[in-house]
């Protein structure tokens, strides 16, 4: 362990602002990347699903027209 206490650890030998800024921004960017990737995938799946349902409805409507 390089630090004697937890407050020592937070202080980072006087460089707390720079160290935590660097680590904080990095973590936030990684989380943003993960979120974006997950949302993109969900969006695509939803789009396909909606398209399929639409096609199903159109098909059903056509069938009804023909049966009349």
């Amino acid at each position: 362990m390089a630090f004697t206490s937890f407050s020592d650890f937070i202080a980072m030998g006087g460089y707390s602002f720079y160290v935590w800024l660097a680590y904080g921004v990095s973590i936030v960017s990684v989380i943003a990347l993960i979120t974006h990737s997950v949302l993109t995938r969900k969006k695509i799946l939803k789009q396909v699903e909606q398209r399929l349902q639409r096609e199903k409805r159109i098909k059903a409507a056509n069938n009804r027209e023909h049966s009349l």
């Binding site: 362990m1 390089a2 980072m12 030998g13 460089y15 720079y18 160290v19 660097a22 680590y23 990095s26």
Partner: peptide, 20 residues
């Protein structure tokens, strides 16, 4: 962040290396 020793010149600021 916690266990590696500090650098002889740069102190604890060198810990940024671990993501940089």
């Amino acid at each position: 962040l916690a266990f590696a020793p500090a650098d002889y010149q740069q102190g604890d600021s060198f810990r940024i290396i671990y993501i940089h």
